[in-house]
Design a binder for these strands. Structure first.
Lengths: 200, 200
DNA sequence: TACGAACTGGACCATGCAGTCCAACCACGA
DNA sequence: TCGTGGTTGGACTGCATGGTCCAGTTCGTA
């Protein structure tokens, strides 16, 4: 890929963000390059100018961008999570991110199911994103333990996995109902794992 | 649709089951009628003979069949669930259904995310399936409460939703890893909601 | 101003896929 | 045996979509 000027970077970014919206709304298969072209007021040649690898490369760029957005939405709490209050603030920010913006789906999770079989390379990106996310949450659980606010008998990795599962599964249930209550119920139940204080 | 002979019924069923396999492996969009035709040793005309509504009708038939299979796999426990042991047996049967058969995905859940936007009619079928399933689980939770094994302060519907979310989300995480541990961790955590005995 | 590199527009191509059509083949009852 | 209705095979069509190509425009810089 050649150098990008400021203008080029903006055009590229516009394409990525719009494609992200389309994918979230209709999935990868339901998103056509022509839709993206029309919505971004660009042309076919621009799409392939910025993403020579075609649709696959574009989708991958979207995955990375959306992943970064998702992590940014959890700042700064996701790097703390050493108190129950911090967890609550994190939870609120996350639910706002999903529901408040009318997403009704996780940009990572929705790719996971669709890409798992068809695009192994993308599946690897998704799996890595889950691992990174899980590591952050597990670190938070450990911080709770180190601070003596949580018993040492719970496995941070398993707690992190169950919290992420609650998010993903909650969204799966909330999406067709278009109502956030399953997501909130699932997340609340999963966070109860943090309510077992250390015996003193 | 005209009457079906025994022979016709078998052919139709063969098409449904094979399509189910393809969809689970590659999604709706990744499943082509030509693939189905080849795998079932049938012809295009048969596909449209048995499913005049085309791919949409076929997918819907698959959803109903797979949904019935999923519910059957949970029998007889799903109609009991009045003891912790019954819940454990149910859980084991369900995990076997998903993992033991190499599914790595929920036939209902995988449709949910893909169909939500594109096929509103199918989305309604999926939403109904979730409601029915949730009603069964919530009934089990109430049975636990009626038997005095679980406190009355927990909301059966929310518990049922969080358990279903754990299943769906656990599968989302397990799928790219091809390892059932996130599913098992999530389900274990969700079932802890049943471990709050009634105060006496 | 001149020039090259990045950027843009849109016509065009190839292909894969859902869906159509019709002729032929059974199976079974009259 | 004949006829009717369900069943099957496969060629064919139309269209959507990913991808190519090239000519023209803008922009930064010397």
């Amino acid at each position: 890929m050649a150098e990008l000027t400021e203008r080029g970077r903006r055009t590229r970014q516009r394409i990525v963000e719009e494609t992200g919206r389309q994918i979230l709304a209709a999935g990868i298969g339901g998103t056509t390059l022509d839709d993206v072209r029309a919505a971004t007021l660009t042309s076919k040649s621009q799409l392939f100018h910025y993403f020579p690898g075609g649709k696959d490369e574009l989708v991958r760029a979207v995955a990375e961008w959306e992943g970064a957005q998702l992590m940014a939405a959890q700042e700064p709490w996701v790097h703390d999570l050493s108190t129950r209050e911090s967890w609550e603030a994190w939870r609120q920010a996350l639910v706002d991110y999903y529901i408040g913006q009318g997403r009704w789906a996780c940009p990572i999770g929705s790719l996971a199911s669709e890409a798992a079989a068809r695009n192994p390379e993308l599946a690897a990106v998704v799996a890595q994103a889950f691992r990174d996310w899980g590591a952050l949450l597990a670190a938070g659980v450990r911080r709770m333990q180190d601070a003596g606010r949580l018993g040492g008998h719970v496995d941070p990795d398993r707690v992190a996995a169950s919290i992420m599962s609650a998010i993903q599964g909650g969204l799966v249930l909330s999406q067709p109902l278009h109502d956030p209550w399953p997501l909130e119920a699932a997340l609340e139940q999963a966070l109860h794992a943090l309510d077992t204080p250390a015996p003193r």
